[in-house]
Amino acid sequence: MHELAIAGHVVDIAARHADGRTVTKVFLKVGHLRQVVPSALSFSFDLVAQGTTVEGAEMVLEEVPAAGRCQDCGTESVLKSFPLLCEACGESNLQITRGEELYVESLEMEEQQNNEELIADR
């Protein structure tokens, strides 16, 4: 259940970037080569976010399929299962180009302004 620890880091990152604003959505990229279970991460996220400025935010998780460039023939292959092999020449000499992502891409937040400030702005 390292999803709990990962969720803790996601909430920390979101709260720091939100800087007091209310976070409504957290967009996360997770590569297929990471052993992260989306449902477990989503559950952990809701739990860990409680009591923070991220509480109630929706975690939007985008999975990234694995891909690799063959160091022998240069072909880029989408990798669906092990062994990871070049789809053109069948060799395993691959440089992984996608699928190891695990990062917070962006946040959606609400900014509050009271009406007096809006009028003053005009």
């Binding site: 880091h9 990062y103 962006s106 609400e110 302004q113 009406n115 809006l118």
Partner: peptide, 19 residues
């Protein structure tokens, strides 16, 4: 009160702090 939705690009590795 008035609420505006804003989007912020973060691009921060989840495990950067650990790394």
């Amino acid at each position: 009160m008035h609420r505006t939705a804003v989007k912020k690009v973060v691009l921060e590795g989840v495990l950067d702090a650990n790394d």
